[in-house]
Nucleic acid binder design. Structure first.
Lengths: 237, 237
DNA sequence: AAGTGGTCTAGACCACCAC
DNA sequence: TGGTGGTCTAGACCACTTG
């Protein structure tokens, strides 16, 4: 039986203190230098242990403020969900949405394909950030098809689902969902406030009406440790 | 405009050499010490750059043999797929399955729940490893319900789909699929030949007959960089 | 201003794999 | 047996956040 490397032993000790309730969800870990000294090792090795716990989703870091204990994961149903606000609240968490902006753009090839338009056609790009219990959980870019959404640029976008239903009488179903494990880098990492290379999920969806009109194309970048995806296949009655 | 940290500059330079075709898919990177010297830095910093590329899925490591360029991702449809062998071949790759063993076990609470049995009931545990182009891509544990599978332990398990169809006349549909980003640790990391803490996906599924008989409960641990998940929602006709 | 995490250096020894 | 990656040390300076 080979002995475990030191950083995995440190991981186990920290994990035990967390699961014992010594360090409750949301609280901050002691400073790296303090932890390193208390374990009688260097910061480099301690940080290996922290990186383990981070990739397992047990802890996360916030800017340069320190390390925090993660809450339990959100359950996300990309096929059936109607509203982030709704399903987050249903799970006993406090949702918040931040609209970063909406702009008129010309469709790229990939966006045009998703919305059944031609490249260069007008589309609207909406960008938002989503929080659960004040922790940022994902950023999204939504490409809206203006053919079905007159004067869309003058609206408010905290709840797109409600806007589509109330103002346009549209109820979406989700098609062509893809889920790709990826690293968060560049402007996405910056918008999420994480370091480049932090693991994440890239999720895309197309929103259609029952008639097959392509209303929106959604691109989401999630932090890896905040969600479990659930796909329940519908029964035909 | 802040200058990028060195390890991200190194990442970009390596990325350029990879995407230019200088380093083709499947080939090995030069040794860490060689790369560090060629970039005029230390191994620690160079390894930060390699960790970035690894988390992005651009490169991967194999035991202590070195770093290799990744191939493109497999597309995986957990809802509709019938056979790993079939859909891997369909994507122009060479599948291989390795059976690690089958044992009679007593159902744990979670397994019993998934298979609609009582804890302690007999179940069979089948463990396999799956390869694409000779790269290990996931390990799985399949819990089989013996009520519907007489003398299952005497069979061969390279293709479970074929076995169920030919011998038992069973065609499965997939229910209650969950997908959780996780870290690969312990015996799972060892079986996959990766370091503890490597990012991965944990996917579970329940296989039912059209009559609702729970035949199997499937737990898969995938390497994060080898797949894109696609969920196509069926149309009702 | 003090403290935090982020980055980086220049070494070292070990375990494992391929030759 | 030689070379690889895996692990670890004992420092250092910087950028940012918080009080």
């Amino acid at each position: 039986m080979a002995e475990q490397p030191l950083y995995l032993q440190l991981r186990d000790q920290l994990m035990q203190r967390i699961s014992s309730g010594d360090l409750p969800a949301g609280s901050r870990l002691p400073a790296e230098r303090v932890l390193a000294e208390s374990f009688n090792t260097t910061r480099v090795t301690l940080r290996q242990a922290l990186a383990q716990l981070e990739s397992e989703g047990t802890i996360y870091r916030s800017n340069r403020r320190g390390w925090f204990i993660s809450s339990s994961r959100l359950t996300y149903e990309p096929v059936n969900d109607v509203s982030f606000t709704h399903y987050v609240a249903e799970q006993g968490r406090v949702p918040r949405t931040e609209v970063l902006g909406i702009e008129k753009m010309q469709a790229s090839i990939s966006v045009a394909t998703a919305l059944a338009l031609r490249p260069g056609d007008d589309v609207f790009r909406l960008r938002r950030r989503r929080f659960a219990d004040e922790r940022l959980v994902f950023v999204e870019t939504i490409w809206l098809n203006p053919c079905f959404l007159p004067s869309i640029e003058q609206q408010r976008f905290e709840s797109l689902w409600k806007l589509l239903a109330d103002k346009y009488g549209i109820k979406l179903t989700r098609k062509q969902i893809t889920i790709t494990p990826t690293a968060l880098t560049g402007s996405v990492a910056a918008a999420l406030g994480v370091n480049s290379g932090c693991p994440g999920l890239y999720i895309t969806r197309i929103g259609e009406t029952a008639d097959g009109d392509r209303i929106e194309f959604d691109e989401e970048f999630w932090l890896h440790d905040v969600l479990t995806i659930s796909v329940s296949t519908q029964q035909n009655h």
